[in-house]
Write a protein that binds this DNA or RNA. Structure first.
Length: 263
DNA sequence: TCCATTTGACCAGG
DNA sequence: CCTGGTCAAATGGA
């Protein structure tokens, strides 16, 4: 890397840090404002929407800063189509080399949880591997909006090795890349927790929320977690989030947590 | 038939 | 050369 590139890179990182700080402040402001409003009022919904838009915007900025030119190239490349499951046609053909290693996507945090899918996003599994010396396989997920909206966020889920004793299964979940997808008023608790915060930004659009919850539970299956949670007819999204939060071993102070502490 | 998941192959980085 | 992230054909369920 030459001097110019490295200076550009470090200044990008400063900007990212500043934006993340702004997001944290925004959450404080969000909490304060919403405390004063009736959650069912039109005003509260408008406020939620405005905060959502601000968060989406900052997520996009961070994502572009992290990925640079590659973000557009990769987003275009995702536009390939499968034709009836047999032959495959690549639109946007392959002058852009697909990077099979996740080198330029930033690791943005890790959590340990009993509920690896209770995180407010819909994920699509794209791979599973047995990692050397690990007892359990690692599963790879990308945001379900990766195709539609070019969202490049991914996560890996791997069951932790138990220290004997307990019957509770814990999973390491590693997140890579910021979401740039819009998803109807739900802000990922992870996104909302850029620093030391507790209340995710949620609106009360029950239809989209329950769709997400059901899809997540019914679609994502893995030998490690199937039957781990049977949560039929979850009534409210807010309850899900609270449950997920209650189950999480760590605080969600993710950007400040080194993954090393889980080792 | 469609769609999500599984799984072996491929490939890049270390 | 080994490891692990991603691809894509095969598979299975709805």
């Amino acid at each position: 890397m030459n001097i110019l590139e490295s200076s550009t890179h470090s200044s990008s990182q400063v900007v990212i840090n500043e934006i993340e700080h702004q997001r944290a402040l925004m959450i404080d402001l969000h909490d304060l404002v919403l405390q004063k409003l009736d959650p069912c009022s039109g005003q509260a919904k408008l406020v939620q929407q405005l905060f959502q838009d601000i968060f989406n915007s900052s997520s996009k900025v961070i994502s572009f800063l992290e990925l640079g030119d590659n973000s557009e190239k990769q987003a275009n490349h995702i536009e390939y189509k499968r034709t009836h499951g047999k032959s495959h046609v690549l639109e946007q053909e392959t002058k852009v080399v697909r990077n099979k290693r996740r080198k330029n996507v930033k690791h943005i945090g890790s959590i340990v949880t009993q509920a690896p899918h209770f995180d407010g996003y819909e994920w699509k599994k794209y791979g599973q591997k047995w990692i050397s010396k690990a007892k359990h396989s690692r599963s790879y997920y990308r945001c379900a909006s990766s195709k539609g909206q070019g969202c490049l966020a991914t996560k890996t889920v791997q069951q932790k090795e138990t220290n004997g004793g307990g019957t509770v299964r814990l999973f390491n979940v590693d997140y890579y890349g910021q979401h740039i997808c819009k998803k109807d008023g739900i802000i990922h608790p992870y996104d909302a927790e850029t620093a030391r915060h507790s209340v995710p930004i949620v609106n009360y659009n029950q239809s989209s929320i329950s769709t997400f919850v059901n899809n997540d539970f019914h679609r994502i299956q893995d030998e490690s977690y199937e039957n781990l949670f049977t949560v039929p007819d979850m009534p409210e999204y807010l309850t899900d989030i609270e449950m997920a939060r209650a189950l999480e071993i760590t605080s969600m102070n993710l950007p400040l947590i080194s993954e090393d502490i889980w080792a």
